[in-house]
Design a protein around this nucleic acid. Structure first.
Lengths: 121, 121
DNA sequence: TTCTTATATACGCGTGTCGGCATATACGTG
DNA sequence: CACGTATATGCCGACACGCGTATATAAGAA
């Protein structure tokens, strides 16, 4: 589990992060909110902490977990290289660049294909 | 492979996406650029297409793959719930000033703006 | 101390997924 | 037609991950 992408691939971890986005929570609170066995919560928190998503402070026997910004920034930076693409996707400039950038122009250009649209599996 | 998060958890798939962020590419071009066996490329492209990350058009025997914006928007929306939180360290200053909006602009507002490096453990 | 609460860790199991290889399909050329 | 190119798919082995259960550690209460 090295990359932030693998860490957030897990639905339960994303749920924990969303929960913590509201406010810091103890392990028990997360456990009850998400109805998830406590060892599972602890283990996911361990992964999240190792990846820098969260940090914990001690309150008696409890551990309060809260978010840390680092990995989210990292994710956002990765997304940046595509943001130009999808935000200005209708832009004419985009099409122009696409055409100019076409690597190996064969005889004909596109033939309009439609890949089948089977979503979900 | 149902969620878009699982799809981008794979490093090779992210490499393909980054490549396509530049311009559309054929399978063979991806194969050579990333030095990845062709079946691997096709398999990853299949996953990416099923998840809506890419679409393909037919050019003779080639398939040209290009990005689609959908999933990236989805990431951005997911990130939105945290953006406010982590961007706080970057431009919270402005936000903060906006909020506090003191009637005394003469006061010094900036203390130590940045300096958020290294968390205690 | 002993008991209870709160959290972390260890162990084993099942399953999904990735990589490699072989093969199938599709298109173009001679 | 046969052949080469371009891409897709099927099969299989290996391995990592998440889950459940049991147990360990730690702190407070009695």
């Amino acid at each position: 589990m090295e990359s932030v992408f693998e860490v957030i691939a897990e639905p339960n971890r994303r749920a924990i992060l969303s929960l913590l986005a509201g406010s810091q929570q103890s392990v028990g609170e997360i456990e009850r909110s998400l109805r998830m066995p406590q060892p599972a919560v602890s283990k996911h928190l361990r992964v999240l902490r190792d990846a820098g998503f969260v940090e914990s402070t001690v309150d008696a026997q409890r551990r309060l977990y809260r978010l840390k910004p680092g990995p989210f920034q990292e994710f956002d930076e990765w997304l940046a290289q595509f943001r130009r693409f999808w935000s200005a996707h209708i832009d004419a400039l985009e099409r122009h660049l696409e055409k100019m950038d076409e690597p190996t122009p064969r005889k004909k250009i596109v033939k309009n294909a439609k890949a089948k649209k089977g979503e979900g599996k």
